[in-house]
Each structure stands twice: as C-alpha cells, then as structure tokens.
Amino acid sequence: MTKRSARKIRWSFFVFFVPVFLWLFLMIVMPQIELLRMSFVGTDFYGESGFTLGHYAAFFTEPIYWLTFVRTAGYALLVTFVVLLIALPVSFFITKVADLKVTGFLMVLILVPFWVSELVRVYGWMILLRESGVLNKLLVALGILKQPVEMLYNDVTMVMGLVYTTMLFMIVPIVSVMESLDDSFIEAAHDLGAKKLTIWRTIIIPYCMPGIMSGSIIVFMLVLGSYLTPNLMGGKNSIWFTEQIYNQMIIYFNWNQGAAFGFLLLLLSSILIWVALKITGQDWRKVIK
C-alpha cells in the first residue's frame, strides 16, 4: 500500500470516527465521570468540600436505602420470571404452532404497543383500572361487584404493569433463537419417550438458553431502572430504588448522594447479572450476540 492511499484511508476513518467519538465522550462518558467524581465529594461541618466515602456508606448503614434496593431487585427478579413464563409459550406458539402467514401478524401485534410511549401506555392502564375506571364500571354493571374497588396503587398492579411494558424485550430474543430450533429435535425427543414437560425441560429450554438469558438481562435491567411504571401504578409503600435517586437529587438537592446511589445501582445490578450468568453456565459473549 502506498503512503498516499494509507493517508486517504485514515482521513475517511476520522470523518466517521470523530462524530461518534465526540458524541460518546461528551454526552455519555463526561457526565458519567462528573457524576462519579460528585459521588465521592462531600461537604464537612464547616462547608469545606473534600473526598468522602460517606455517600456510599449511607447506603449500607441506612436500612431504608438498602432495603429499597433489595425490594426493587426482588421485584425485578419476580417480574423477569413472570415475563419469562409468559414469553416461552407465546414464542413457541409464534415460531412452531402458528401458520407462517399468521406469524408476522402476531409479531406486529406484540410490537405495536411499543410504538406508543411508556407514559401513554401506563395512563392507558390507569384509565382501565382506577376506581372510576372502565373495568370497575363493567364489573359493577354486571353485578359482580357491589361497589367499585381501587385496583391501582398496589404491588400486584405494579408488577402486572412492569410485565406488560417489558414483554417485548423477552419475546424477541427468544423467538429468534427458537426459530432455529429444528422441529425434528422435538419430534425425536417425543419419539424417544419424552412427555411434553420433559421436552420443554430437556430440549426446548436448554436450546433457547442464550435467548432466555439475553431477554432476562434486558428485562431485569429495564425493570430495575424503570421509574415511570412503579411511580404511577405502585402505591405509596412501593418505593422503587430509582425514586430514591430522584428524591435525593430533586427533592433534597443532594446530588452527591444521588450520584452515589446511581453508581451503586449500576454496580449491584452488574454483579447480579454476572452471578446469574455463572449459575446458568452461560457465556456472556454468546448471550450478547
């Protein structure tokens, strides 16, 4: 290669690389670094600011903080599990049972709600479920309920809302793996004496494991970091960890504490996912693909 053409290539490389680099660096890396710095800065009694680990320590010493995190992580796991339980048969129906013509239509049905913003969808549920909502009116009219019941602002409704808003992110990766599952594997297992449940346990789920894991990671992270749904549909008792961050930053104007919580959320969720990958014996490179 001549010097001339080498220089040419380098130029074209910079033309494409610089905007991407600037975008990533200025918009994402820089604010993160600033937040990280903030999380280690505290003001002492005299108003002097200096390095401190106090914001991180606060998380472990104040039960309200770490309990909120445990609660959030617990619910995130529960939601992930429920989403998985629903997504497996749905994906199976789409890829193996339904007609080829219907498959595309079913995928569109799953996709369409996600063209609307999460806020609008949550408000949609609220219209259905609130005390003066559609469902209550219907049940009272049918005589099943004597008087309207408040169905919003409790944990069950919140979990349902989270399951609904994250379903797509589980179904898409599972469908894409399941499509490559040869029908003859299922038939062969059946032929060799396996019952339906055994086929799921020994053939379908192990085969779809990369899709299940990547779907689960996405759903888990989305739920853990979600703010709207738990805030709007959950009750006053069901405070989410993201709300703690919001409260610190916006209500108490304690940005340093909020930043520390933000990084703790990142760190702890990463550890949880790493543990989950270890337990299921999955290679993260495969899962990310």
Binding site: D182, S184, F185, E187, A188, A189, H190, D191, L192, G193, A194, K195, I203, P206, Y207
Partner: peptide, 19 residues
C-alpha cells in the same frame, strides 16, 4: 402416543441433540 410406541425413528437429518 409416539412416546409410548415400541418403534423408534431415525430422522432424515438425524436430529441428534446439539446441547
């Protein structure tokens, strides 16, 4: 049912379980 029959089938593409 197929899983109860005393016959077994060798599939065209063998269907050996890859996992």
């Amino acid at each position: 049912e197929p899983n109860k029959r005393p016959v077994n089938l060798v599939f065209q593409h063998l269907a050996l379980f890859p996992m």
